[in-house]
């Protein structure tokens, strides 16, 4: 396997958890809800996903556990922000703090254990093709699922009636409510979907990326996923580009560290975070004249009047 091929495969692996979590958050934000708890839901997905896979020996069950954990945590967020009209920023932060604590508690019993990593696709001939074979036909199920997920989200948002309603709720909850759409119910479903995606993104880490669980192993990926949604201008297509760009930054800094180059390793490790800040600034600046493209009701509490 050539170096380039190895790099591309590791870039895909580094991008997939970001893409999964960001795709879910994109739907949540399109419905007008800002859930900053992605990091907490991801790390819970990682802990529960590992627990599920370790106890049953099945990656698939592990992934389901991860989805369930992320969705369960997002339900708490929904109860607060939709049910009790709590400030979404504060509730999202609480969710992250809670998720980090709970995952440490759940994962403590599994630290040091190993599992078999997720199986990779193998199609005779196709997977054996030079260069592109492994990249296109030799990935694990998460990778294919993440691409299919984004495609489905695009189709849902722009080609279905339900997607149009969801976008309407996010752009003007008062109008959508006046038209008779159940704003809170639609938002609840979006939040649960986002929670499941974040949980799955987190579960990818111990199930496919490294075959073990470490407390805090998401290392800020949830926050980067949030930044990716801003980067994508809330459009699914750009989300894929953004996620792969960030995956590439992560992997290139690892390779640069391996080569030495005399640059402090901490500077290289800081690159993904610095890149996030720089990208946010560039995107916001470029948009400055064109006006904001964020869903108009994003982060605003909605209490239906009677």
């Amino acid at each position: 396997m050539g170096l380039l091929e190895a790099i591309i495969i590791s870039v895909i692996a580094a991008s997939t958890p970001l893409l999964l979590a960001a795709a879910g958050e994109l739907v949540v934000e399109r419905s007008g809800v800002l859930n900053l708890g992605t990091e907490g839901m991801m790390i819970m997905g990682a802990a529960c996903g590992f627990a599920g896979a370790y106890l049953t020996g099945s990656t698939f069950v592990g992934a389901l556990f991860g989805i369930a954990a992320g969705a369960a945590l997002s339900l708490v967020f929904a109860a607060l922000t939709l049910g009790l009209a709590v400030n979404q920023v504060a509730a999202g932060l609480a969710l992250t703090i809670l998720g980090i604590g709970l995952s440490g508690l759940i994962g403590a019993g599994f630290v040091g254990e190993r599992i078999t990593p997720a199986p990779r696709l193998y199609i005779p001939l196709l997977t054996d093709l030079p260069i592109v074979g492994k990249i296109l036909f030799g990935q694990d199920g998460f990778v294919y699922f993440s691409i299919a997920l984004v495609a489905t989200i695009w189709w849902f948002l722009y080609r279905t009636r339900a997607g149009l309603v969801l976008r309407a709720v996010g752009d003007s909850h008062t109008s959508a409510h006046a038209l008779g759409y159940p704003v809170l119910k639609i938002r609840l479903l979006a939040v649960l979907f986002g929670g499941g995606c974040a949980g799955l993104g987190g579960a990818f880490l111990p199930l496919a990326y490294t075959p073990f669980f470490i407390p805090g192993m998401t290392a800020g990926r949830g926050w980067i996923a949030l930044a990716l949604v801003v980067f994508s201008s809330w459009m699914p297509g750009r989300l894929v580009a953004g996620a792969y760009l960030f995956g590439a930054v992560t992997i290139l800094q690892l390779h640069a560290q391996a080569f030495g180059l005399g640059i402090p390793s901490q500077l290289m490790s800081a690159l993904p975070y610095l890149a996030t800040v720089i990208v946010l600034v560039l995107i916001s600046r470029a948009r400055g004249s064109a006006g904001s493209v964020a869903p108009a009701s994003l982060g605003i509490v909605f209490v239906p009047d009677r």
Binding site: W223, Q266, Y273
Partner: peptide
Amino acid sequence: CKVRYGANEILTSLMLVYVADLI
């Protein structure tokens, strides 16, 4: 970054935590 370019302060301030830690 927020005042000059309108960049979301929640994400930028949080990202800089990791950078400070590495410094």
